[in-house]
Design a protein around this nucleic acid. Structure first.
Lengths: 151, 151
DNA sequence: TCCATATAGATGCAAGTGCATCGATATGGA
DNA sequence: TCCATATCGATGCACTTGCATCTATATGGA
């Protein structure tokens, strides 16, 4: 099988995507640090758990949602639990598993992170592109998803 | 100062951008690993040094180009040197500094990485969006750069 | 029932990263 | 000239991540 070459347009778009996404993450992480808040990954997990409600989520369900490896989820949950932001409950019908639920403290932390995170998004994206442009951008990016029919 | 809230469009575009960029990086890093090749960051540095030619670059010049912290560049260069992919030369007019130059082995490695990297870009971007769409995407992303007048 | 295999989640170890700081040289002003 | 300050690059230490593997439980077929 022969290796293919990307078009100049594909390379240019790739380069922009790599560079800009890293810049935006860095800016946002810096803002969180400046506010004495934990990294973005904590927000992602707390957000998913808040959405999930009282039923909580199984760790393996978090893996694809937050795009973290299995051991990454395991260790992140251990840290969140140590901070009292989530609690782990045994699950009755599967002795191997557990259910992870957000605590009131976790909801509060999620809110505090969002105050900074949301402001960062507003500044870095909302101020720079119109609503129409943002929709176009999201649509184009959606076409790059993996798997193509997924999220 | 009051914290602002991002528009739904900004949040949606942000979420897509974060998720897709991470998926693309992950896919590409996986392809490199599968080929027994080093991470993307190595390519970035080798690419910049190849572009710079025989004159090479000072480490501090690499910092902004590859979006790495000072200590990140320092240690990455040490690894590249240990692999014989770059060489460090003293610079006559500044006793603190050095010039880093790519070696033939480094150029070869760059080529080998590109065979996989380029194919990955072609598959992940070129196959999914038209040239027009790629241009639109790159243009929109460029508006998110930091600093706004920069790269 | 028993056992081979699969799945959920945790973890030891090596490698990478962030932070703070260091040593060395440069620079500019008194 | 001298010294305070700035810049270049490296590094010790703590923490995080990746990889491989482990333990424990579940499942399905003979």
């Amino acid at each position: 099988m022969t290796k293919r070459s990307p078009s100049p347009e594909a390379v240019a778009a790739w380069a922009r995507l790599m560079r800009v996404s890293r810049q935006l993450v860095e800016k946002t992480e810096d803002a969180l640090k400046a506010g004495g808040l934990p990294p973005l990954a904590w927000y992602d997990v707390l957000h998913e758990l808040a959405e999930a409600g009282e039923g909580g989520l199984r760790p393996f369900e978090l893996i694809d949602r937050v795009l973290l490896a299995q051991y990454g989820v395991s260790r992140l949950l251990a840290r969140l639990e140590a901070e009292g932001l989530v609690e782990k409950l045994p699950v009755s019908d599967d002795g191997r598993g557990q259910t992870v639920r957000i605590t009131p403290g976790g909801r509060d932390m999620r809110r505090r992170i969002w105050a900074v995170y949301g402001a960062s998004i507003a500044e870095l994206m909302g101020d720079r592109l119109s609503a129409e442009e943002l929709k176009t951008l999201a649509t184009l990016l959606a076409r790059l998803r993996h798997p193509p029919t997924g999220n």
